[in-house]
Amino acid sequence: MDYKLLLMKYILYSRLQNQLQDEGIILDDFDWLKDKVIRLAGSKEKYRNVCNKSNSKTYDKGLWAFWKLLIHAYYVDIFTNVAKKHKSNVVYIDLLAGPGINYLEDLDLYIAGSPLIAKHAPRVTKDGRSKAFDKMVLVDKDEECCLSLEKILDCKTLCADCNSAEVMSEIARVMKPKKSLFLTFLDPEGTQVHWSTMEKLFQLPGDFIINYPWSGVARFARGYHGTSGKGRKKSGERLDCFFGDTSWRNVPEDSSAEWLYDFYLNRLQEHRSEIVEFQISMKGGGQYRILIATRKTRSGSPWLNPVRELRDRLDGITDETLMNLVEVYKGTQRPLTDWIS
Protein backbone atom coordinates (compact mmCIF):
# COMPACT_ATOMS: atom_id res chain seq x y z
CA MET A 1 0.00 0.00 0.00
CA ASP A 2 1.35 3.45 -0.94
CA TYR A 3 1.01 5.27 2.38
CA LYS A 4 2.56 8.46 0.98
CA LEU A 5 -0.17 8.64 -1.68
CA LEU A 6 -2.88 8.01 0.90
CA LEU A 7 -1.42 10.71 3.13
CA MET A 8 -1.30 13.18 0.24
CA LYS A 9 -4.94 12.47 -0.65
CA TYR A 10 -5.93 12.92 2.97
CA ILE A 11 -4.12 16.27 3.15
CA LEU A 12 -5.72 17.49 -0.10
CA TYR A 13 -9.15 16.38 1.06
CA SER A 14 -8.70 18.08 4.44
CA ARG A 15 -7.52 21.33 2.87
CA LEU A 16 -10.47 21.30 0.47
CA GLN A 17 -12.86 20.67 3.32
CA ASN A 18 -11.33 23.48 5.39
CA GLN A 19 -11.63 25.96 2.52
CA LEU A 20 -15.26 25.08 1.95
CA GLN A 21 -15.98 25.30 5.67
CA ASP A 22 -14.43 28.78 5.69
CA GLU A 23 -17.25 29.71 3.30
CA GLY A 24 -19.79 28.05 5.59
CA ILE A 25 -20.02 24.96 3.38
CA ILE A 26 -19.40 21.37 4.36
CA LEU A 27 -18.13 18.88 1.81
CA ASP A 28 -21.51 17.16 1.77
CA ASP A 29 -22.98 20.44 0.49
CA PHE A 30 -20.41 20.54 -2.30
CA ASP A 31 -21.23 17.00 -3.40
CA TRP A 32 -24.94 17.72 -3.02
CA LEU A 33 -24.74 20.83 -5.20
CA LYS A 34 -22.64 19.00 -7.77
CA ASP A 35 -25.44 16.44 -8.07
CA LYS A 36 -27.96 19.25 -8.62
CA VAL A 37 -25.84 20.78 -11.38
CA ILE A 38 -25.68 17.41 -13.14
CA ARG A 39 -29.42 16.91 -12.75
CA LEU A 40 -30.28 20.31 -14.20
CA ALA A 41 -27.65 20.43 -16.95
CA GLY A 42 -27.56 16.70 -17.72
CA SER A 43 -24.44 14.58 -17.87
CA LYS A 44 -21.85 15.83 -20.37
CA GLU A 45 -23.85 19.03 -20.95
CA LYS A 46 -26.85 17.14 -22.26
CA TYR A 47 -29.07 20.20 -22.70
CA ARG A 48 -26.45 22.16 -24.60
CA ASN A 49 -26.34 19.27 -27.06
CA VAL A 50 -30.15 19.01 -27.21
CA CYS A 51 -30.37 22.72 -27.95
CA ASN A 52 -27.70 22.58 -30.64
CA LYS A 53 -29.26 19.57 -32.38
CA SER A 54 -32.83 20.86 -32.33
CA ASN A 55 -31.92 24.52 -32.93
CA SER A 56 -34.43 25.34 -30.21
CA LYS A 57 -35.11 28.69 -28.66
CA THR A 58 -33.65 29.24 -25.20
CA TYR A 59 -34.74 31.33 -22.25
CA ASP A 60 -31.66 33.42 -21.50
CA LYS A 61 -31.25 34.34 -17.85
CA GLY A 62 -28.69 34.97 -15.15
CA LEU A 63 -27.24 32.94 -12.32
CA TRP A 64 -30.31 33.38 -10.12
CA ALA A 65 -32.34 31.17 -12.50
CA PHE A 66 -30.26 28.16 -11.42
CA TRP A 67 -31.36 28.56 -7.80
CA LYS A 68 -34.97 29.04 -8.85
CA LEU A 69 -35.02 25.87 -10.94
CA LEU A 70 -33.15 23.90 -8.28
CA ILE A 71 -35.96 24.75 -5.83
CA HIS A 72 -38.54 23.85 -8.47
CA ALA A 73 -36.94 20.46 -9.14
CA TYR A 74 -36.63 19.72 -5.44
CA TYR A 75 -40.29 20.34 -4.77
CA VAL A 76 -41.49 18.52 -7.89
CA ASP A 77 -39.83 15.38 -6.54
CA ILE A 78 -41.27 15.80 -3.04
CA PHE A 79 -44.74 16.71 -4.28
CA THR A 80 -45.10 13.83 -6.74
CA ASN A 81 -43.72 11.31 -4.26
CA VAL A 82 -46.39 12.27 -1.71
CA ALA A 83 -49.26 13.01 -4.10
CA LYS A 84 -49.05 9.75 -6.03
CA LYS A 85 -49.61 7.82 -2.80
CA HIS A 86 -53.01 9.43 -2.29
CA LYS A 87 -54.27 10.75 -5.64
CA SER A 88 -54.99 9.06 -8.95
CA ASN A 89 -54.80 12.19 -11.13
CA VAL A 90 -51.76 14.34 -10.39
CA VAL A 91 -51.45 17.34 -12.71
CA TYR A 92 -48.62 19.77 -13.47
CA ILE A 93 -49.59 23.28 -14.61
CA ASP A 94 -47.02 25.72 -16.02
CA LEU A 95 -48.66 28.99 -17.05
CA LEU A 96 -45.48 30.59 -18.43
CA ALA A 97 -43.70 27.47 -19.62
CA GLY A 98 -41.05 29.02 -21.88
CA PRO A 99 -39.12 27.15 -24.60
CA GLY A 100 -37.95 24.24 -22.42
CA ILE A 101 -34.25 25.04 -22.03
CA ASN A 102 -32.61 27.90 -20.14
CA TYR A 103 -29.25 29.39 -21.02
CA LEU A 104 -27.42 30.91 -18.04
CA GLU A 105 -25.02 33.43 -19.49
CA ASP A 106 -23.11 33.95 -16.23
CA LEU A 107 -22.20 30.25 -16.23
CA ASP A 108 -22.26 29.56 -19.99
CA LEU A 109 -24.53 26.67 -19.04
CA TYR A 110 -27.66 25.18 -20.60
CA ILE A 111 -30.09 23.69 -18.10
CA ALA A 112 -33.54 22.14 -18.19
CA GLY A 113 -36.43 24.56 -17.96
CA SER A 114 -39.41 24.01 -15.69
CA PRO A 115 -41.44 21.74 -18.07
CA LEU A 116 -38.49 19.39 -18.61
CA ILE A 117 -37.89 19.29 -14.87
CA ALA A 118 -41.55 18.46 -14.27
CA LYS A 119 -41.26 15.58 -16.72
CA HIS A 120 -37.97 14.12 -15.51
CA ALA A 121 -37.62 15.04 -11.80
CA PRO A 122 -40.27 12.66 -10.39
CA ARG A 123 -38.64 9.51 -9.08
CA VAL A 124 -39.09 5.88 -10.06
CA THR A 125 -39.52 3.46 -7.15
CA LYS A 126 -37.35 0.38 -6.64
CA ASP A 127 -40.13 -1.81 -8.00
CA GLY A 128 -40.29 0.30 -11.18
CA ARG A 129 -43.37 2.43 -10.46
CA SER A 130 -43.12 5.95 -11.83
CA LYS A 131 -44.13 8.95 -9.74
CA ALA A 132 -44.54 11.07 -12.87
CA PHE A 133 -47.39 13.52 -13.35
CA ASP A 134 -50.46 11.99 -14.97
CA LYS A 135 -51.18 15.12 -17.01
CA MET A 136 -49.36 18.34 -17.87
CA VAL A 137 -50.83 21.70 -18.90
CA LEU A 138 -48.08 23.76 -20.55
CA VAL A 139 -48.98 27.32 -21.51
CA ASP A 140 -47.06 30.12 -23.18
CA LYS A 141 -48.18 33.15 -25.13
CA ASP A 142 -45.09 33.08 -27.35
CA GLU A 143 -45.62 30.82 -30.37
CA GLU A 144 -41.89 30.26 -30.81
CA CYS A 145 -41.63 29.05 -27.21
CA CYS A 146 -44.51 26.65 -27.76
CA LEU A 147 -42.98 25.21 -30.93
CA SER A 148 -39.62 24.78 -29.23
CA LEU A 149 -41.16 23.06 -26.22
CA GLU A 150 -43.24 20.72 -28.38
CA LYS A 151 -40.12 19.75 -30.32
CA ILE A 152 -38.06 19.01 -27.21
CA LEU A 153 -40.73 17.31 -25.10
CA ASP A 154 -42.87 15.78 -27.85
CA CYS A 155 -45.94 17.22 -26.17
CA LYS A 156 -48.89 19.50 -26.79
CA THR A 157 -48.84 23.08 -25.54
CA LEU A 158 -51.45 25.77 -25.22
CA CYS A 159 -50.31 28.90 -27.03
CA ALA A 160 -52.44 31.47 -25.23
CA ASP A 161 -52.50 34.17 -22.58
CA CYS A 162 -52.21 32.49 -19.19
CA ASN A 163 -55.26 34.41 -17.91
CA SER A 164 -57.52 33.45 -20.81
CA ALA A 165 -60.77 31.52 -20.57
CA GLU A 166 -59.22 28.92 -22.88
CA VAL A 167 -56.51 28.13 -20.35
CA MET A 168 -58.90 28.01 -17.40
CA SER A 169 -61.20 25.70 -19.36
CA GLU A 170 -58.34 23.28 -20.06
CA ILE A 171 -57.29 23.26 -16.40
CA ALA A 172 -60.87 22.56 -15.33
CA ARG A 173 -61.03 19.69 -17.83
CA VAL A 174 -57.85 17.93 -16.67
CA MET A 175 -58.79 18.44 -13.01
CA LYS A 176 -62.29 17.02 -13.43
CA PRO A 177 -61.58 13.43 -12.28
CA LYS A 178 -62.01 12.68 -8.60
CA LYS A 179 -58.85 12.48 -6.51
CA SER A 180 -57.15 15.15 -8.62
CA LEU A 181 -54.34 17.33 -7.30
CA PHE A 182 -52.22 19.90 -9.11
CA LEU A 183 -48.84 21.53 -8.75
CA THR A 184 -48.58 24.84 -10.59
CA PHE A 185 -45.44 26.83 -11.33
CA LEU A 186 -45.93 30.57 -11.77
CA ASP A 187 -42.79 32.28 -13.04
CA PRO A 188 -43.64 35.80 -14.24
CA GLU A 189 -41.05 38.45 -14.97
CA GLY A 190 -43.62 41.06 -14.04
CA THR A 191 -47.36 41.14 -13.52
CA GLN A 192 -48.45 38.62 -16.17
CA VAL A 193 -50.42 36.35 -13.82
CA HIS A 194 -53.58 38.13 -12.72
CA TRP A 195 -55.12 37.64 -9.29
CA SER A 196 -58.39 36.58 -10.94
CA THR A 197 -56.47 33.61 -12.39
CA MET A 198 -55.04 32.84 -8.97
CA GLU A 199 -58.53 32.83 -7.47
CA LYS A 200 -59.71 30.26 -10.00
CA LEU A 201 -56.75 28.04 -9.13
CA PHE A 202 -57.36 28.50 -5.39
CA GLN A 203 -60.75 26.83 -5.84
CA LEU A 204 -59.04 23.62 -6.97
CA PRO A 205 -56.93 21.29 -4.81
CA GLY A 206 -53.25 21.87 -5.36
CA ASP A 207 -49.93 23.47 -4.44
CA PHE A 208 -48.13 26.50 -5.83
CA ILE A 209 -44.53 27.34 -6.63
CA ILE A 210 -44.56 31.10 -7.18
CA ASN A 211 -41.71 33.25 -8.35
CA TYR A 212 -42.79 36.57 -6.87
CA PRO A 213 -41.25 39.29 -9.08
CA TRP A 214 -40.10 41.58 -6.28
CA SER A 215 -38.16 44.01 -8.45
CA GLY A 216 -40.67 44.08 -11.30
CA VAL A 217 -43.64 44.83 -9.05
CA ALA A 218 -41.70 47.55 -7.22
CA ARG A 219 -40.77 49.09 -10.57
CA PHE A 220 -44.43 49.36 -11.60
CA ALA A 221 -45.27 50.85 -8.21
CA ARG A 222 -42.61 53.52 -8.71
CA GLY A 223 -44.06 54.15 -12.15
CA TYR A 224 -47.46 54.67 -10.59
CA HIS A 225 -46.27 57.04 -7.87
CA GLY A 226 -43.59 58.81 -9.89
CA THR A 227 -45.36 59.56 -13.16
CA SER A 228 -48.56 61.12 -14.35
CA GLY A 229 -50.98 60.73 -17.21
CA LYS A 230 -50.95 57.53 -19.30
CA GLY A 231 -47.84 56.11 -17.62
CA ARG A 232 -49.40 56.34 -14.18
CA LYS A 233 -52.70 54.92 -15.42
CA LYS A 234 -51.02 51.96 -17.15
CA SER A 235 -48.86 51.06 -14.13
CA GLY A 236 -51.86 51.31 -11.83
CA GLU A 237 -54.03 49.07 -14.00
CA ARG A 238 -51.33 46.42 -14.28
CA LEU A 239 -50.91 46.24 -10.52
CA ASP A 240 -54.69 46.25 -10.00
CA CYS A 241 -54.83 43.05 -12.07
CA PHE A 242 -51.82 41.54 -10.31
CA PHE A 243 -53.06 42.17 -6.76
CA GLY A 244 -56.77 41.80 -7.50
CA ASP A 245 -57.94 45.16 -6.16
CA THR A 246 -56.82 48.76 -5.67
CA SER A 247 -55.87 48.64 -1.99
CA TRP A 248 -52.19 48.16 -2.93
CA ARG A 249 -52.24 51.86 -3.85
CA ASN A 250 -51.94 52.66 -0.14
CA VAL A 251 -48.30 51.57 -0.31
CA PRO A 252 -45.87 53.92 1.49
CA GLU A 253 -43.61 55.31 -1.21
CA ASP A 254 -40.48 54.98 0.95
CA SER A 255 -40.93 51.22 1.50
CA SER A 256 -42.86 50.06 -1.54
CA ALA A 257 -41.07 46.76 -2.34
CA GLU A 258 -41.31 45.23 1.14
CA TRP A 259 -44.84 46.51 1.71
CA LEU A 260 -46.13 45.17 -1.60
CA TYR A 261 -44.54 41.78 -1.00
CA ASP A 262 -46.15 41.52 2.45
CA PHE A 263 -49.47 42.58 0.92
CA TYR A 264 -49.24 39.79 -1.67
CA LEU A 265 -48.09 37.25 0.91
CA ASN A 266 -50.99 38.04 3.23
CA ARG A 267 -53.47 37.62 0.39
CA LEU A 268 -51.88 34.31 -0.60
CA GLN A 269 -52.05 33.03 2.99
CA GLU A 270 -55.82 33.45 2.97
CA HIS A 271 -55.94 30.58 0.46
CA ARG A 272 -52.76 28.56 1.15
CA SER A 273 -51.73 29.02 4.76
CA GLU A 274 -48.51 26.96 4.69
CA ILE A 275 -45.83 28.94 2.85
CA VAL A 276 -42.06 28.44 2.68
CA GLU A 277 -40.16 31.48 1.43
CA PHE A 278 -36.83 31.57 -0.42
CA GLN A 279 -34.95 34.78 -1.18
CA ILE A 280 -32.86 35.02 -4.34
CA SER A 281 -30.67 38.04 -5.03
CA MET A 282 -29.56 39.09 -8.49
CA LYS A 283 -26.60 41.03 -9.80
CA GLY A 284 -27.35 44.73 -9.68
CA GLY A 285 -29.48 44.45 -6.55
CA GLY A 286 -32.63 42.89 -8.00
CA GLN A 287 -34.52 40.33 -5.97
CA TYR A 288 -36.97 37.51 -6.30
CA ARG A 289 -38.92 35.54 -3.74
CA ILE A 290 -39.74 31.90 -4.40
CA LEU A 291 -42.85 30.83 -2.50
CA ILE A 292 -43.99 27.25 -2.02
CA ALA A 293 -47.58 27.41 -0.88
CA THR A 294 -49.91 24.63 0.20
CA ARG A 295 -52.91 24.01 2.42
CA LYS A 296 -52.28 23.13 6.03
CA THR A 297 -53.17 19.51 6.74
CA ARG A 298 -54.19 17.82 9.98
CA SER A 299 -50.76 16.19 10.09
CA GLY A 300 -49.07 19.58 9.83
CA SER A 301 -47.79 19.23 6.23
CA PRO A 302 -44.65 17.27 7.19
CA TRP A 303 -43.44 17.11 3.57
CA LEU A 304 -42.53 20.80 3.92
CA ASN A 305 -39.83 20.01 6.49
CA PRO A 306 -37.25 19.00 3.85
CA VAL A 307 -38.20 22.14 1.90
CA ARG A 308 -37.32 24.26 4.92
CA GLU A 309 -34.07 22.32 5.23
CA LEU A 310 -33.36 23.11 1.58
CA ARG A 311 -33.89 26.81 2.25
CA ASP A 312 -31.44 26.72 5.17
CA ARG A 313 -28.92 24.81 3.10
CA LEU A 314 -29.05 27.23 0.18
CA ASP A 315 -28.52 30.16 2.52
CA GLY A 316 -25.00 28.85 3.16
CA ILE A 317 -23.94 28.34 -0.47
CA THR A 318 -22.54 31.27 -2.43
CA ASP A 319 -22.80 32.10 -6.12
CA GLU A 320 -19.00 31.84 -6.30
CA THR A 321 -19.16 28.24 -5.10
CA LEU A 322 -21.71 27.44 -7.79
CA MET A 323 -19.62 29.10 -10.49
CA ASN A 324 -16.49 27.17 -9.49
CA LEU A 325 -18.43 23.94 -9.33
CA VAL A 326 -19.89 24.47 -12.80
CA GLU A 327 -16.37 24.92 -14.14
CA VAL A 328 -15.46 21.58 -12.57
CA TYR A 329 -18.57 20.02 -14.15
CA LYS A 330 -17.65 21.39 -17.58
CA GLY A 331 -14.12 20.06 -17.24
CA THR A 332 -12.37 23.42 -17.41
CA GLN A 333 -10.97 23.06 -13.89
CA ARG A 334 -9.30 20.18 -12.11
CA PRO A 335 -11.73 19.11 -9.39
CA LEU A 336 -9.34 19.32 -6.41
CA THR A 337 -6.40 21.54 -7.15
CA ASP A 338 -8.42 24.55 -8.24
CA TRP A 339 -10.16 24.52 -4.88
CA ILE A 340 -6.92 24.52 -2.92
CA SER A 341 -4.99 27.70 -2.29
Rank of each mutant, 00 (worst) to 15 (best):
Gly331Thr: 07
Thr191Glu: 12
Ser88Ala: 07
Glu270Leu: 11
Asp240Trp: 02
Gly223Trp: 09
Thr80Gln: 04
Thr294Pro: 04
Arg173Thr: 09
Ser215Thr: 11
Leu325Ile: 03
Leu181Tyr: 12
Arg129Asp: 12
Glu237Trp: 12
Glu150Trp: 00
Asp262Ala: 10
Arg39Asp: 15
Ile93Val: 13
Pro188Tyr: 04
Glu150Thr: 02
Met136Phe: 10
Ile340Trp: 01
Glu45Leu: 09
Lys53His: 14
Lys230Asn: 14
Pro335Tyr: 09
Arg313Glu: 01
Phe242Tyr: 01
Phe278Cys: 00
Met175Ile: 03
Val82Ala: 13
Leu69Gly: 03
Gly244Lys: 03
Lys44Tyr: 15
Leu107Val: 02
Asp127Gly: 04
Glu277Trp: 01
Tyr59Thr: 03
Gln17Gly: 10
Leu153Asp: 06
Gly98Leu: 01
Met282Tyr: 07
Thr197Cys: 07
Gly229Trp: 00
Lys85Phe: 10
Phe242Pro: 00
Arg129Gln: 11
Arg39Leu: 15
Ile280Ala: 00
Lys53Glu: 15
Ala83Ser: 11
Pro122Ala: 03
Ile111Arg: 00
Ile38Glu: 13
Glu166Lys: 10
Glu277Tyr: 02
Gly42Cys: 07
Asn52Trp: 14
Lys200Arg: 13
Lys176Cys: 09
Gly190Ser: 08
Tyr103Glu: 10
Pro115Met: 03
Leu260Glu: 06
Arg39Trp: 09
Phe263Arg: 05
Asp207Ile: 03
Tyr288Ile: 00
Arg173Gly: 04
Tyr13Glu: 14
Val76Asp: 11
Ala132Tyr: 02
Ala165Glu: 13
Ala65Gln: 12
Val90Asp: 04
Leu6Trp: 13
Trp195Cys: 04
Pro122Arg: 01
Phe182Gly: 06
Val137Met: 02
Lys200Asn: 14
Leu6Ile: 12
Leu322Gly: 06
Pro335Gln: 07
Asp60Thr: 15
Leu16His: 10
Ala165Phe: 09
Leu116Trp: 07
Glu270Ala: 12
Pro252Val: 07
Asn163Thr: 07
Asn52Glu: 15
Gln333Thr: 14
Asp29Ala: 04
Thr246Gly: 12
Gln279Arg: 09
Leu304Asp: 04
Asp94Thr: 02
Gly316Phe: 08
Ser281Lys: 06
Thr297Arg: 03
Ser54Glu: 15
Arg222Gln: 14
Ala118Cys: 08
Met1Gly: 15
Gly284Ala: 00
Asp35Ser: 14
Asn49Gly: 11
Ala257His: 05
Asp187Met: 06
Gln17Arg: 15
Val139Gly: 02
Val251Phe: 10
Ile317Gln: 06
Cys162Tyr: 05
Met282Pro: 01
Pro177Ser: 08
Trp195Val: 03
Gly236Asn: 08
Glu150Val: 00
Arg238Pro: 06
Leu16Ala: 13
Gly62Val: 02
Lys230Arg: 15
